[in-house]
Amino acid sequence: MKRTTVLAAGAFLVGGVTYLAAEAIAAFGWTDRPYSYARNNISDLGIPDISPWHAVMNTGFVVDGTLFVLAGLGLSVLFEGRARWIVLGTSVVHGVGSIVVGLAHASVDGASAPHAAGAGMAIIGGNLVLLAAGRYGGRVGAPRWYTIGSAAAGVLGLAGLALFLGDTGILGGGTFERISVYTIIGWEIVTGATIFAQRRLTKSR
């Protein structure tokens, strides 16, 4: 197993866990009123005027985005031709979008144009990475359960985004937004863990 692949796995794991930890800390420190994962948007945690731990959440966005770009670069070398550029391109779009979200936080009056653009890049780009993993993962030895799961998660994430933007009122807006984001975060962690597990299995043979 290439060293770049192992480093990519570590970046995915650290990035995903960092994001979840930053979100949990910022939500726990919410003092104005109880923070609701179902009703409140994720970006609310990064607004200085209403989130005491906004710096933690925004740092989580930036760290995860940066590590995702690096991980995508590390994994892209496993592929050839168009697949390589699709994996790398979608990873960069997601990572840069996440960084923009952290640097150009929203406000109580709504999301600024840079923040909205960054969020769109992060969510759409990230779920396209999942679809790419489902389409091309088998070429580099990924197990079938992983490729099917990646593709399914990507479809679910994009569906969650559509429902969030549609403001259907079926569930709280935060629920659908989190569906569109947690598919990516969950995939990061599963991908990192899967790579490490395969590496350990290979060494034991």
Rank of each mutant, 00 (worst) to 15 (best):
K2L: 12
K2N: 12
R3G: 01
T5E: 15
V6M: 09
L7K: 01
A8P: 00
A9C: 07
G10D: 12
A11C: 10
F12D: 14
G16R: 08
G16W: 12
V17W: 11
Y19G: 04
Y19F: 15
Y19L: 13
A22R: 03
A24Y: 13
A24P: 02
I25V: 15
A26E: 08
F28Q: 13
T31R: 03
R33I: 13
P34I: 11
Y35I: 04
S36I: 09
R39L: 10
G46W: 03
G46H: 04
I47Y: 09
P48K: 02
S51I: 04
W53F: 15
W53Y: 13
A55C: 00
V56A: 05
N58C: 04
N58W: 04
F61D: 15
V62N: 02
V63G: 05
D64T: 11
D64F: 12
L67Q: 10
A71H: 01
A71P: 02
G72N: 11
L73K: 00
L73T: 05
L75F: 14
L75W: 06
L75S: 09
V77M: 01
V77G: 02
L78K: 03
F79P: 00
E80K: 01
E80Q: 04
E80L: 01
R82I: 09
A83T: 08
R84S: 03
T90Q: 06
S91A: 15
V93Q: 00
V93K: 00
V96H: 03
G97C: 08
V101C: 14
V101A: 14
G102R: 01
L103R: 10
L103A: 12
L103S: 08
A104I: 11
A104V: 14
H105R: 13
A106P: 02
V108G: 08
A111W: 09
A113C: 01
A113K: 01
P114I: 14
P114N: 14
H115W: 06
G118I: 08
G118C: 08
G118S: 03
A119F: 12
G120L: 10
M121K: 02
A122R: 02
I124H: 07
G126F: 09
L130T: 05
A133M: 09
A133Y: 10
G134K: 03
R135L: 15
Y136F: 14
G138N: 07
R139S: 15
R139Y: 10
V140S: 01
G141C: 06
P143I: 11
P143N: 13
W145Q: 05
T147Q: 03
I148R: 11
V155H: 06
V155I: 14
L156F: 11
G157A: 05
L158R: 09
A159Q: 09
G160P: 02
A162Q: 08
A162W: 10
G166I: 11
T168H: 04
I170R: 02
I170S: 11
L171F: 14
G173K: 05
G173H: 06
G174P: 01
G174R: 06
G174Y: 00
T175P: 00
F176G: 05
I179C: 04
V181E: 15
V181T: 13
V181I: 15
T183L: 10
T183G: 07
T183R: 09
I184Y: 01
I185G: 04
G186D: 11
E188M: 13
V190W: 12
T191A: 07
T191I: 07
A193V: 03
T194L: 12
F196Q: 06
Q198Y: 06
R200L: 11
R200F: 07
L201Y: 00
K203W: 15
K203P: 00
